[in-house]
Simulated assay, not measured.
Amino acid sequence: MKIKNWGITCLSAVILIVQSCNNPKSSNQKETSSNISVSATDSRGKTITLPHEAKRIVVLYNALVDDVYMLQAGEKIVGIPQQIYEMEDTYHFLSRLDDRIKNKSIATPTFGGQSSNAESIVGLKPDLVLTFNTDEDNINQIENLGIPVFTFSSLNDEKILDELKNVGKLLGKQKRAEEITGYVSEEVKKMRTSHEASPKKIYYAWSKGRIMSTSGKGSLIDMAITLSGAQNACPVPVEAPNISAETLYKWNPDLIILWNSKLSDVYSLKELTALPAVKNKQVFVMSPSFPYDPHTVKFMLFAKQLRHWCMPSYTQEQLDQDVKKAFEIIYGKKGLI
């Protein structure tokens, strides 16, 4: 009987060993699943494939840093533009999401401005770099060093939403990206069904006092103006035309909107003193600019701010409520604004 029992025990042990080999522990299965390759298509139409979700990323433009925090993937960032620390409203907000921003401890692999230092980027050992597709020289240099680059275009609302969903795949935040883009898409639909019969004309002036530089038909700003229910005063199908004061009088906008400029940049121009929008004090500054960055899904809030200035029926109270709700959803956290 003892020999028989011993044999049964040995057989049972062998079976258990075989089963353990064929059925690894759940923790091992979980570890394996986290290393599954991920792919996404960027603004160039290029498919970026990583052996696993990105764990260390360098971001070369401010708006894209914002995107990463919306996706709640800020802990993956190892490099950002120097401007994040220099732009007061951006720095103040992102400091509330990440102590490393607050302490200015995240590396800034830049020479200054938008120029990046490839050597510094390599030293940060990223497995992914995020940038705009206009940054061709840097993109080529970084990719030639064997570092994957995902590019954005932010050409219009559809591209902004699509690019956020795609980068969400690479960061392991696909579900989060779907939550954000789903909400924004619904808000955009609502806005497009509630336009004024006689839309006001808006002239948009570029930042840093470049009053005679604007955004034409088909541009990102043109999309946001149209979404607001207004009309772009610039009828030219050019991305960034420079115009004369005479042309601005000809277009005769109802409102002038400034971005990172001062009211005095307009009111001090003698050649514009007789322009109706100037005489009627219909010049507005989008300030602080961070909540309304049109290069992100906040193009929706940019449009809502324009709507408030154009349509008295859309009150400041309603705008404030909409901005508060939007921030809770796109950042996934209450009390940020």
Rank of each mutant, 00 (worst) to 15 (best):
I3M: 13
W6G: 11
C10R: 05
I15L: 14
L16C: 15
V18M: 07
Q19W: 14
S20G: 13
C21Q: 13
N22L: 15
Q29T: 12
K30M: 11
T32Y: 11
S34Y: 13
A40H: 07
S43V: 01
R44D: 15
K46P: 00
T49D: 01
E53R: 12
Y61M: 08
L64T: 06
D66K: 05
D67I: 09
E75N: 12
K76C: 03
E86N: 13
E86P: 06
S95C: 03
L97T: 10
L97N: 09
D98G: 04
N103L: 11
F111W: 12
G113S: 04
A118D: 12
P126C: 12
P126R: 08
L128F: 04
V129G: 08
D135Q: 14
D135I: 07
E136T: 15
I139C: 01
N140K: 15
L145A: 10
L145Y: 03
L145Q: 09
F150K: 08
S153K: 06
S153C: 08
E158C: 00
V167S: 01
G168E: 03
L170A: 09
Q174L: 10
K175N: 14
A177N: 05
E179H: 10
E179A: 11
S185D: 07
S185N: 09
E187H: 01
R192I: 10
H195S: 13
K201H: 07
M212Y: 15
G216A: 01
D222C: 03
L227D: 09
L227V: 02
A240T: 13
A245P: 10
A245K: 06
L248E: 05
L258F: 00
K262H: 09
S268V: 02
L269F: 01
V283G: 07
V283N: 05
F284T: 01
V285N: 15
P294T: 08
H295T: 15
A303P: 06
A303F: 08
H308I: 00
M311Q: 15
D320I: 00
D320S: 14
A326T: 15
E328W: 06
I330W: 06
K333E: 11
L336K: 06
L336C: 04
I337W: 12
I337E: 13
